[in-house]
Design a protein around this nucleic acid. Sequence first.
DNA 1: GGTGTATACTATGTTATACGAGGTATCGAC
DNA 2: GTCGATACCTCGTATAACATAGTATACACC
Lengths: 112, 112
Amino acid sequence: MRFDRELLKGTTETFLLAALAESPCHGYQLVEQLKRRSDGIFELGEGTVYPLLYKLEAKGWIKGQWDSDTALRRRRVYRITPRGRRQLAQRTRQWEELVRGMTLILKGAAHA
Amino acid sequence: MRFDRELLKGTTETFLLAALAESPCHGYQLVEQLKRRSDGIFELGEGTVYPLLYKLEAKGWIKGQWDSDTALRRRRVYRITPRGRRQLAQRTRQWEELVRGMTLILKGAAHA
DNA sequence: GGTGTATACTATGTTATACGAGGTATCGAC
DNA sequence: GTCGATACCTCGTATAACATAGTATACACC
């Protein structure tokens, strides 16, 4: 499904945190991960993912490390930090609250 | 609840369409409506609502009419148009799809 | 009759988000 | 030795929501 770009705003960071909470990942792989894990609903481009990773790292929510041992190509593997997990929990609560509010409003409109 | 501003992006137009689908309303009242109908979860300011109403009207999804008969003060009552209802239905589908995708991703992270 | 408050609309500048588009480099296969 | 896949990086753009400020009317109260 193709979304209005604006509908995704504010949710993308949460995607990445959630994906990294499940397992460490490098950027290129995250693009595939998100697509797969969301059942094809989300497709973030590299131009979205990489800048976001730098930002999340700068905030201390994830930590990147160059993986030169196992990898064929140089790549940066990101892991979620304890602070990142707290941030994810908080965002998850906000998300659920948003869903609750939207449901209330859309339900009203449906039977109007 | 206080939201990250960005999380609301793309949803606000849908709020307004949904609220107007239930009953015609003027701008000032919409601010109160949305707060009440969402159980206090959403609080949009006038600086958000009015410019949005102009935009929705320009797109032909709602139609405003100056109400000088019943009102004490001049005020503009907006009604949703047939095209607006189709737009709302489409946005509702997108919203449900977004919720589905987010649920898949957040669920995975929760038991990771 | 003047002051304050609630109603009601209008207009503008700011911030930051997601994305497209373009670029670099390495590896394996044919 | 060329092609495609992997992997990363960067910049410019559109636009959304909001804060802020401004205008104007009705009404209550002293």
